[in-house]
């Protein structure tokens, strides 16, 4: 019983971090219908940056995550300007393929800079935990979870309560109408994409503390993100949070009760199961094009 409670808590804590990592991806998909396969690479890049600053200066890696958030914003802005803005008008799928190219090239660049050894940041609290009866709550996971929730809350507030948020949602529905009320569509898209990238700042920092990683880890992370958004329903932020919790739980339960070797397969199995059972995701609208044109 304790094992179960313990596993569920660990799963949910990690799920919070997954939710943050998927939120930016989900935002970009929801507004631009682009599958940004470079999102995983941005997370791993943020993880390397956090680890590297911590390694050099000893500054807490989670704190570094907050500091590199603007850096990742700029990375997103540049990626948008140089790549996405040029191809997405031709075709969404072409933009996805381009982002696939970016992801793979980025893996190579990170390998050149930081090598292919396994890394992870190990601040003082890295191996300590709070004791709650017989249940253990690791501090690193808890802090990462709390930070992720705070950033997700801020993101939600931004989308619902500000003019930028309304403009972003307007662009996601009807570009021409958005332009006609005076929204500069291209600039709003660029900002939205960059905000999506900025969410990987803290996400990557959390990764660097609670996981080990190498440049190639971005394949695993994009797999997890795809799983989260397919589970929740593509483009739904709330769905992404739910999907993240399920994936976190699924991985934790598999590790505890089956075999850690199979925990890596959980995202892919979940993808296939959800498509068989409920293709539109748990909270998503239909993926079908029906009616949308009529």
């Amino acid at each position: 019983m304790t094992l179960l409670v313990q596993t569920v808590i660990l799963g949910l804590l990690v799920g919070g971090v997954y939710a943050l990592m998927s939120s930016g991806f989900s935002l970009v998909f929801g507004v631009m219908r682009i599958i940004n396969l470079a999102h995983g690479a941005m997370i791993v890049l943020a993880a390397f940056l956090s680890w590297w600053v911590w390694d050099r200066t000893g500054i807490d890696p989670l704190l570094v995550g907050v500091i590199i958030t603007p850096v990742m914003y700029v990375v997103g802005r540049v990626l948008y300007r140089l790549v996405i803005a040029r191809v997405h008008r031709i075709d969404h799928e072409l933009a996805m393929v381009a982002s696939f190219g970016v992801a793979i090239a980025a893996g190579g660049v990170m390998a050149l800079i930081w090598g292919t050894e396994v890394r992870s940041a190990t601040p003082s609290y890295f191996n300590t935990s709070f004791q709650l009866g017989s249940v253990v709550i690791p501090q690193a996971q808890l802090y990462a979870f709390a930070g992720a929730l705070a950033i997700l809350g801020a993101l939600y507030g931004l989308l619902r309560g500000t003019f930028l948020g309304r403009a972003i949602r307007a662009c996601s529905e009807n570009r021409d109408s958005a332009a006609l009320v005076g929204i500069e569509v291209e600039r709003t898209m660029a900002q939205m994409f960059a905000i999506g990238a900025a969410t990987t700042g803290f996400g990557g920092a959390a990764l660097s503390v609670i996981y080990q990683f190498v440049p190639d880890s971005h394949y695993v992370w994009i797999g997890r993100i795809l799983c989260v958004v397919i589970l929740g329903g593509l483009g739904s932020l709330l769905g992404a949070a739910l999907g993240a919790a399920i994936l976190g739980l699924g991985e934790a339960l598999t590790s505890s009760y089956v075999d850690t070797r199979w925990a890596t397969a959980v995202p892919y199995i979940l993808i296939i199961v959800i498509l068989l059972v409920r293709p539109q995701g748990l909270l998503g609208g239909k993926l079908r094009a029906d009616g949308a044109r009529a």
């Binding site: 003019f163 309304r166 403009a167 949602r169 307007a170 529905e173 009807n174 021409d176 109408s177 958005a178 006609l180 009320v181 929204i183």
Partner: peptide, 14 residues
Amino acid sequence: GLFGNLTVRDNMLL
């Protein structure tokens, strides 16, 4: 031309 997923108020604000 309305933003269907936004409220009437949000549409007016936009």
